[in-house]
């Protein structure tokens, strides 16, 4: 290693574009990245460090925005269209290969990289039961002592609206336990799903901003906003919370 070229914090936004997302929900999803761009433009400490990628999925998954500096003037933001079912396994498998190759490339380019964070937004139940679970394990399992699994495993923060099944999304919180457990965010039952997505974008930005501030305070990686700061219409849950 020569001089480091920088310390980066990668975020991956994974969005459901199955047919059920058609309409206002998809429009709201399309506004997430422009809103993040606006927030980063006002936060130079953070914008130097944050790298962002977007993956969409239905029956398959596609990298719609490869990991990049969102304030880079050459970036073209993707437009989204719905297509097909809700196979959770597809984006999880894609994340595994993307994260691994992105981090290897960044390290080869001389950057130090903090643990990535994945925001996973869906409005439905997975259409690939049995398959997505093993893809999730491949993405997140790591045994530090035995050095088995995926050492670059991300922190995963699920976001659910409308038809999303809480107990399914809850299984995707990672890490679920330990010193820095993640949480998931669910829209209230009667909440307009498009409005809920916009609210979740706020939570996501607040988390990115908080993570930057927490890096300034010596932590490495993502920090979620405290529950009392959450906007209305969305609630947060831990991995062992019950649903009433």
């Amino acid at each position: 290693m020569e001089s480091e070229r920088g310390k980066l914090l990668p975020f991956y936004l994974v969005v459901d574009v199955s047919y059920s997302m058609q309409g206002k929900k998809l429009d709201a999803v399309g506004r997430i990245i422009p809103t993040i761009v606006d927030a980063l433009a006002k936060a130079p400490i953070l914008s130097d460090k944050v790298r962002f990628a977007m993956i969409d999925f239905a029956d398959d998954a596609q990298v719609r925005l490869p990991l990049c500096d969102l304030l880079d003037e050459h970036i073209v933001l993707p437009s989204l269209a719905t297509r097909g079912g809700t196979a959770f396994g597809a984006p999880l498998r894609l994340l595994r290969t993307e994260i691994e190759s992105n981090i290897k490339q960044l390290k080869a380019d001389g950057f130090a990289v903090h643990r990535p964070a994945v925001f996973f937004l869906s409005d439905g139940e997975p259409t690939d039961p049995g398959a997505w679970e093993s893809a999730f394990t491949d993405l997140t399992y790591y045994d530090k002592e035995k050095r088995q699994g995926f050492p670059m495993y991300p922190n995963v923060i699920p976001f659910g609206v409308e038809g999303a099944v809480p107990t399914t999304l809850q299984r995707m919180i990672h890490p679920a336990t330990g010193s820095k457990p993640m949480r998931m965010y669910l829209a209230d039952h009667n909440q307009d799903p498009a409005a809920a997505i916009t609210t979740m974008a706020e939570i996501l930005i607040s988390s990115i901003l908080k993570s930057g501030q927490s890096m300034a305070m010596g932590n490495s990686g993502i920090l979620l906003p405290p529950d009392e700061d959450l906007p209305g219409g969305v609630k947060s849950f831990g991995a062992d919370d019950d649903f009433v």
């Binding site: 290693m1 020569e2 001089s3 480091e4 310390k7 001389g110 130090a112």
Partner: peptide
């Protein structure tokens, strides 16, 4: 940290 091993541009 930016110095690394001292062998780069810093």
């Amino acid at each position: 940290d930016p110095l690394g091993h001292g062998t780069g541009e810093v």
